[in-house]
């Protein structure tokens, strides 16, 4: 059963948000595996979303990770905020692909969505690490990379074997990037590399 669906626990039906806050309050520290099944963020939204418990306010965080203490990410927001983000059994983690908390590193950027806890922390429902989604123009093509222009900046987009896919004019995803052309406009969804500012490409959507 997906965590986006209801699960029986103690005779009471739990939605995803109730589950993750319960896990956070209970001090659950198991990350990367779930008692409820798959934790893919896309799958979490594949089914109609259950009504969120209005008694538990939603929360969002954005910034860079400055420390990792067990299952808590200490994040410095880009506008001076500070967030403590709890990873629980119900947290889905994306870093170029769906992965586990072990892939998260200090220095990574992230967006996190979850529930605001009474102690000021955020119990994360989903964490997207280093994710970027940029509009670019293709300036160069090599076997293992695309040279991209994003605004006035030049960025290298690395083609990752068994991961990078392409979509041509909204068509089905394919691993074949041979129809990519210089000068083509594209949207690149991928993972930013903090070390050099380049991008590992998850998906490139080619336009006209």
């Amino acid at each position: 059963m997906s965590p986006s669906q209801h699960s029986e626990s103690g005779g009471r039906r739990l939605d995803r948000r109730r589950f993750l806050t319960t896990a956070a309050i209970g001090g659950a520290t198991i990350v990367g595996a779930s008692a409820l099944g798959g934790l893919d963020a896309d799958a979490a939204f594949a089914e109609p979303m259950p009504s969120l418990d209005t008694a538990i306010p939603a929360a969002f965080a954005e910034g860079r990770i400055v420390a990792i203490n067990r299952n808590v990410l200490d994040v410095a927001g880009s506008h001076g905020e500070r967030y403590l983000i709890q990873l629980t059994n119900a947290t889905s983690v994306w870093k170029l692909r769906t992965t586990t908390a072990e892939a998260i590193e200090v220095g990574d950027g992230l967006y996190a969505r979850g529930a605001a806890m009474p102690d000021g922390t955020i119990a994360a429902d989903a964490v997207w690490v280093n994710i970027v989604n940029v509009y670019v123009t293709i300036r160069g093509i090599a076997k293992d990379r695309l040279h991209l222009q994003h605004g006035s900046a030049e960025v290298v987009g690395h083609i990752v074997p068994d991961t990078t896919t392409a979509s041509y004019l909204g068509g089905a995803l394919t691993a074949d990037l041979s129809k990519t052309r210089i000068g083509q406009e594209a949207q690149v969804l991928g993972a930013w590399r903090p070390a050099d500012g380049n991008i590992d490409i998850a998906r490139v959507s080619l336009g006209h």
């Binding site: 896309d42 969002f60 994306w94 997207w128 949207q187």
Partner: peptide, 14 residues
Amino acid sequence: TPSAFSAIGSLSSG
């Protein structure tokens, strides 16, 4: 924005 998009879907879907 990521804040708005993630309120109704997954950022990794694009």
